[in-house]
Design a protein around this nucleic acid. Structure first.
Lengths: 204, 204
DNA sequence: AAAATATTTAAACATTTGATTAAAACATCC
DNA sequence: GGATGTTTTAATCAAATGTTTAAATATTTT
């Protein structure tokens, strides 16, 4: 039952396929991805995909779950921490989220695209609205600005953080020079966004 | 060569197909759309699609061009108007863009999704970065805040306006009650965003 | 009305695509 | 070293899918 005797530098077929699936699904989405694309990317025989993961759908769900987790896993603990102030939460979101997305710039468009096509499936089961509504963050927002709908403020902070990664392909060539400029700007934003959000919180 | 004698309530087959293509492509994107879906939606024989538009690709390009135009057509004239102040431009963008997107909430995810899959094609030809760089808006931004990269500010204003429509499927059921709440919030945002942007412009 | 042209239809075609199969290759255990 | 179980391969399948064809029907022109 033991896998391989060499523990180092041996990547299992299963993991090769998963990694290839991550790459291809992320780049093209579920519908535009062919199982043969994944097999080629992984450098394995097509049949192995079904041998290890039963179907394209199952393999996709695996990747989707991972990415969904990555996308929301960072933010939920921050939003729910009762020991940090509103301002600190915003600092943490800006900092950690921008770090995450700089390393995974395709994450937002992937998540949002696939949710749009599926709409039902695992997405509806998460009920983001309910999770948010019960969060510390929303409570703190409501205390500070009872006159503003907390969703307004959440959309604003997330828009400031996430939207640049969505419009990057429109603004920049994928060339390396542009990437560096973009990443530098995102890094600056870690400082700006908390300041801007303070202004928003105190607006009018 | 005259189309139809009855001018009223007669929709040409060509237009029926185009309209169905708009609906289906917008909802599912290029890859997930089957030509048969479009034919069914239009209530026409499958072969007519190719008879009138040669191919799925050609039909898609038509729809994409339209939507691209809708997405950017509103904003470019505002950005380039030399007779309005910075503040007024932001007011106009918030107001007109939110109005447009409330009527076409799927527009942003459609554009961004398809650009991601294609990347090259007609999108690269538009060179949004160059168009923006030469706009009045950017000149005015640069005058006001020479210390801030104008792209930072453009990403912020667009993020505040557009991002809510991207995360709507995550926050809300497609039910009618939620839609009304969402639209009401977007309407409020027409007022808030100019105020917020003023704060951003004067930050620190 | 006949001829010419344009539109529509049902059927079929050629590829593509996700999945399966049966056998070969490989590894492990006694 | 042979039996046993696991992994890999090449070939194939059936369904889906974009497109074409040829005949039928409708419309326009002469």
């Amino acid at each position: 039952m033991a896998k391989k005797i060499k523990p180092e530098e041996q990547i299992s077929t299963e993991e090769k396929i998963k990694e290839a699936a991550r790459t291809v699904f992320m780049k093209k989405g579920f519908s535009a991805t062919r199982t043969r694309d994944i097999a080629d990317e992984a450098g394995i025989n097509l049949a192995l995909l079904n041998y290890y993961f039963r179907s394209k759908e199952k393999l996709f769900e695996l990747v989707m779950m991972e990415k969904f987790q990555a996308f929301f896993g960072v933010i939920f603990p921050i939003l729910n921490d009762p020991s940090t102030t509103l301002e600190r939460k915003v600092e943490l979101i800006a900092d950690q989220y921008i770090t995450l997305l700089t390393e995974n710039p395709d994450l937002p468009i992937f998540i949002l695209s696939e949710i749009r096509t599926n709409a039902d499936r695992m997405v509806a089961s998460v009920r983001l609205d309910k999770i948010l509504a019960e969060s510390q963050f929303v409570k703190q927002l409501h205390e500070r600005r009872p006159d503003m709908h907390s969703v307004q403020l959440i959309m604003s902070i997330l828009g400031l953080v996430v939207f640049p990664f969505l419009m990057r392909p429109l603004l920049m060539q994928t060339g390396n020079a542009d990437t560096k400029i973009f990443n530098a700007m995102m890094n600056e934003r870690k400082q700006w966004i908390p300041k801007w959000f303070d202004s928003i919180l105190n607006a009018k």
